[in-house]
Every structure is written in structure tokens, then in C-alpha cells.
């Protein structure tokens, strides 16, 4: 993936950087749950991606999450995956 690092840097300065970072992690985790993965902030500098089976990897930015996750679970994380969408529907209907 070759996106400019600044392409998805944040919410256009509307929220403080740290708050935005936490929000991003929270949102990604809702997606990653469906693939039995989890992302944690690492000292505000990078992120730690971990699997339920105990694999971990440090990733620098949002762009790097997907290739690392793909390697970890051995398949692509397709945002159009029906199981993922069913999971998201369930999440949003729960509230």
C-alpha cells in the first residue's frame, strides 16, 4: 500500500491529536474484533497489533495496520466481508 502518510492523518484538526488517536484506535478495534485481533496505542508513538493467539507486532501508522493484520491471520481483511458487516450491524443495533 502506498498512500501518503498524511492522507489520513487525523480529523482535519477538529479534535485534539491525542483524542483523535484514541478514537481511531477504538474505531479500528470495532473492525478488528471481527477478525479476532486487537490494536493498542503504544506510548502515543506507534501501535501494537495483537491476535488472540498471542502474536504481536508493532506498527507505525494506520496504513501499516492492514498488511500486518493480513500477515497475522493469513487472509485479507475485506471491508465488504459479509461476516464483518453482520458484526457491525449487530454492534450498531445493540445501542
Amino acid at each position: 500500500m502506498s498512500a501518503s502518510p498524511e492522507a489520513f492523518g487525523g480529523r482535519q484538526g477538529v479534535v485534539p491529536r491525542r483524542q483523535e488517536r484514541l478514537y481511531r484506535v477504538k474505531l479500528i478495534n470495532e473492525i478488528l474484533k471481527s477478525f479476532a485481533l486487537r490494536l493498542d496505542d503504544w506510548q502515543g508513538q506507534s501501535f501494537i497489533l495483537s491476535s488472540r493467539t498471542g502474536k504481536t507486532e508493532i506498527v507505525d501508522d494506520l496504513m501499516a495496520v492492514w498488511p500486518a493484520a493480513e500477515k497475522m491471520i493469513g487472509r485479507q481483511l475485506d471491508p465488504m466481508d459479509p461476516a464483518l458487516l453482520a458484526h457491525l450491524r449487530h454492534q450498531t443495533m445493540g445501542h
Binding site: M1, A3, L62, W66, Q76, D78
Partner: peptide
């Protein structure tokens, strides 16, 4: 951003 980067990684 999450959606598009995920889409491009898997289906670019």
C-alpha cells in the same frame, strides 16, 4: 480513512 485504507489494502 479506515474504510478506504482497508479497501485498498485488500482490493486495491
Amino acid at each position: 480513512g479506515i474504510w478506504l485504507t482497508m479497501l485498498l489494502q485488500s482490493r486495491g
